[in-house]
């Protein structure tokens, strides 16, 4: 094994991790604020991919405008889902919301299959995104760099928003304690809706990036990345934005190195490895890498 081989695998892992990170942020935000594992999150990721396909391939929008459309589409579906399925059952046991989110996932997937079929579709991107850039002993594609940069920029913007704006503070307060936040005059309905909107918008952008990198999307594409992003969120420490990002990169890296460094017959165990890692992390560090340990996870 050469250094270049290791380096290229590390880059592979980082790119995959960046996409996990973006999906994981949404998971983490929503979990942080309403203690809900939103199973439909992976399908919103797929919605984003199709919104991108629609705006680039059908409506022929320029790329930056397409990103905007994707963000809006994700936010809109997120809001819709929150309004229809989660708001009416707020206050119910956690499990209720979890099941509702599974139901929403099934509805979204079947609607997609009924209207646009489960056929995978080609996702064409501008040629310059596919160009190879030499980087020391290896070469990297522009799209890979773009993915990592975009993930980091969006994360930084989000962290800034949550930390330094009034709305961001209100969101944190809501996450900390519903009741007290409400007493302080914070409109918690709006905060929860906002968390859904932002989280879903980021997942939708991840869908766009996924399409751009792999060139193919399908209505059922969200299931596995969605679950893995959840694992990433847990590894990082659920509820923490920077934790979700860290978790995403760690998981992407671990997954690729698992496949890349072990003999090839282990490659097919990569999903098993991801979930085994989840169980392991939860046992050793129940609060994740940088999660807070304020609550007993009951």
């Amino acid at each position: 094994m050469t250094g270049a081989y290791l380096l290229s695998q590390i880059v592979n892992g980082l790119v995959l991790g960046a996409m996990y990170a973006l999906i994981a942020i949404g998971f983490s935000m929503i979990y942080g604020i309403v203690r809900l594992i939103n199973f439909a999150h992976g399908d919103i990721f797929a919605v984003g991919a199709f919104a991108a396909l629609g705006s680039i391939a059908i409506a022929a929008l320029p790329f930056p405008l397409a990103v905007l459309v994707v963000l809006l589409a994700g936010a809109l579906v997120g809001l819709l889902v929150e309004r229809a399925a989660f708001r009416p059952m707020r206050g119910a046991p956690q499990v209720t919301g979890f099941i509702a989110s599974l139901a929403v996932a099934i509805i979204l997937e079947n609607l997609a299959v009924m209207t646009i079929t489960a056929q995978p579709r080609t996702f064409a991107i501008p040629a310059w995104l596919g160009a190879l850039v030499p980087l020391g002993s290896i070469s990297v594609r522009v799209v890979d760099i773009a993915i990592i940069v975009l993930a980091l920029v969006l994360t930084a913007a989000l962290v800034g928003f949550v930390r330094f704006t009034r709305t961001g503070m209100a969101m944190r307060a809501t996450a900390e304690n519903y009741g007290v936040a409400r007493l302080m005059g914070i409109n918690i309905d709006r905060m929860i809706a906002l968390a859904f909107a932002i989280g879903s918008a980021l997942a939708a952008v991840a869908g766009l990036m996924w399409g751009a990198k792999y060139g193919q999307i399908s209505p059922l594409m969200g299931t596995v990345p969605g679950l893995k992003a959840f694992v990433a969120a847990v590894i990082g420490g659920v509820g923490s934005i920077s934790g979700a990002v860290l978790g995403g990169f760690v998981l992407g890296l671990a997954e690729v190195l698992f496949v890349g460094l072990l003999p090839s017959e282990f490659s097919a165990f990569r999903n098993a490895f991801v979930f085994a890692a989840l169980i392991l992390v939860l046992l050793v560090m129940p609060n994740g890498l940088i999660g807070k340990s304020t609550e007993t996870r009951a």
Partner: peptide, 28 residues
């Protein structure tokens, strides 16, 4: 023995992961 130390959602996802793990072994 290890997994049941987890609660609520965490256990849900860990057991969901178990499905993937068992499936992987059945396939491979």
């Amino acid at each position: 023995i290890p997994v049941l130390r987890l609660r609520g959602h965490y256990l849900a996802v860990a057991t969901l992961g178990l499905i993937f793990i068992v499936q992987s072994f059945a396939v491979n």
